[in-house]
Design a protein around this nucleic acid. Structure first.
Length: 248
RNA sequence: AUCCAGAGUUUUUACA
């Protein structure tokens, strides 16, 4: 079983999700009853392969075999919904696990926020942050970043920025914005053609203790190119190299 | 004592 779980995991992680799922079938044919870990790894393979329907089916199959999906299984399943843009199903799973007495943890909520992001539901993504707090789960940096990204993907740069500002001003223990956060905000600015504002933010990153990375510069250059500011794009590229950041 | 097979976030990339 450990063998199967390991191999399924490796295959899922290396993008060979279809082989991972075939392997689960193989286990059955060999007369081996896959355990919870195998199923969870397979559900995660569904996420990679955007097979939301199959992920739900696997959850059901587990229960039929007397296996109880746990937080990790649900986290993977919600991720599978997220990758397929099925935000409603993701929220259904959140409710479902709570009904089974499994209180969603920070990862499950985080995955659900991402599902809303991928589904274009930025308002829901933001309100989920509040819902999780009410459920006694404090959003971590990833949850905030994901909500900021939800706004960004819809071009809501002002909302994205306001959440980021709140992160800056929150208590000492609260999560600080990082490159993921600011890159998402810049993406939002690029999206709506606010390239000047974006460059201002890029150059102000150091002041808030965040080092721009390849994604930061790449996002900035795309914004410049989109606005036909080719000279700006070029100088951004040069700035990047001078900062010791190199393209992959 | 701690770790010891399985989950969540940014640009580009797939089906279009």
């Amino acid at each position: 079983d450990i063998m199967y779980s390991c191999i399924i995991t490796v295959m899922a992680k290396s993008g060979r999700w279809s082989e991972a799922l075939l392997l689960l079938e193989q286990a059955h044919q060999d007369g081996i009853a896959p355990n919870k870990y195998c199923y969870t790894a397979a559900v995660n393979a569904c996420a990679k392969g955007r097979k939301s329907r199959l992920a739900i089916a696997l959850l059901q199959e587990m229960r039929v075999k007397g296996l109880r999906p746990d937080h990790v299984t649900y986290g993977s399943a919600i991720t599978a919904m997220a990758k397929s843009g099925e935000w409603e199903r993701a929220l259904d799973l959140l409710r479902e696990m709570a009904e089974e007495g499994l209180e969603p943890n920070v990862v499950c909520f985080g995955a659900a926020v991402d599902a809303c992001a991928k589904g274009g539901q930025w308002r829901k993504a933001v309100s989920l942050l509040e819902e999780m707090r009410e459920a006694g789960v404090e959003p971590d940096r990833i949850c905030y970043n994901t909500a900021v990204n939800a706004c960004a993907q819809s071009g809501q740069w002002e909302i994205a920025l306001s959440i980021t500002d709140k992160m800056h001003c929150a208590g000492e223990k609260a999560p600080r914005p990082d490159a993921f956060t600011l890159n998402s905000v810049m993406y939002a600015m690029a999206y709506v053609g606010e390239w000047e504002r974006l460059l201002g933010m890029l150059h102000g990153m150091h002041d808030v203790g965040v080092v721009p990375d390849v994604v930061s510069y790449n996002t900035a250059m795309r914004a410049c190119n989109k606005a036909q500011q080719y000279n700006r794009a070029l100088s951004t590229f040069e700035t990047m190299l001078q900062a010791g950041v190199f393209p992959d």
